[in-house]
């Protein structure tokens, strides 16, 4: 059933990418992405294996992997790939598909939640409201994990930031939030297709 939901996904096409799909078939599995990745050690599936799963059309495994949420997006893999496969782009595409299908790895909840809340924040404000972001993120994690100490983690930083005039209680918002709303709308519509 899951495969049906994935629609026209084949080993050559990643589920989501704009404007063109990434040609994962070009990858010859040399592993240079894994070799240079600053966080590969923390991944359940190494970057070259993530691309391999995409080659095989093993979307279930790829989309549920923790690795795609460990990726920090530093572009080292894409930069050094001898076959010019945009490995970082593959990670992006898999994250997008993983979230859209509700398959994001529970073990990487913090990352997933943060990115979601970040996007909601700019959706609402046009520009990032840091305090609101932190607040929402902490509450969300608290509600989800029940870890009360997390609420106060880094709380010590707040006065430090305040002292350094780095906290803005009334941050600037984009003036034309209507256009932001419409951009989000137009970019989300097609994604569901």
């Amino acid at each position: 059933m899951e495969n049906q939901a994935l629609g026209q996904v084949t080993s050559e096409r990643l589920p989501v990418h704009f404007p063109d799909p990434i040609q994962v078939a070009n990858c010859y599995q040399c592993g240079k992405c894994t070799a240079g990745c600053p966080v590969a050690m923390h991944m359940d599936v190494a970057p070259n294996q993530v691309v391999r799963l995409a080659q095989l059309g093993e979307w279930e495994k790829a989309l549920r992997s923790r690795a795609i949420w460990e990726c920090v997006g530093c572009q080292t893999c894409s930069t050094r790939c001898p076959k010019e496969v945009d490995c970082a782009g593959v990670m992006d595409a898999l994250r997008e598909a993983s979230l859209a299908r509700g398959m994001a790895a529970p073990g990487r909840y913090f990352v997933v939640a943060f990115q979601k809340i970040f996007l909601e924040n700019i959706h609402r404000n046009g520009r990032l409201n840091e305090l609101e972001l932190i607040g929402h993120f902490k509450v969300d994690v608290l509600l989800h994990t029940g870890r009360i100490p997390f609420l106060f983690k880094d709380a010590g930083l707040a006065p430090q930031l305040g002292k350094r005039k780095k906290l803005h209680l009334i941050p600037g918002r984009a003036r034309d939030r209507g256009v932001v709303e419409r951009i989000f709308e137009r970019c989300s519509g097609e994604r569901k297709a």
């Binding site: 040399c30 592993g31 240079k32 894994t34 990745c37 590969a40 190494a46 070259n48």
Partner: peptide, 10 residues
């Protein structure tokens, strides 16, 4: 810094 793709690790 290399990779061992058979072991799946850097």
């Amino acid at each position: 810094r290399g990779a061992d793709t058979l072991a799946g690790m850097p």
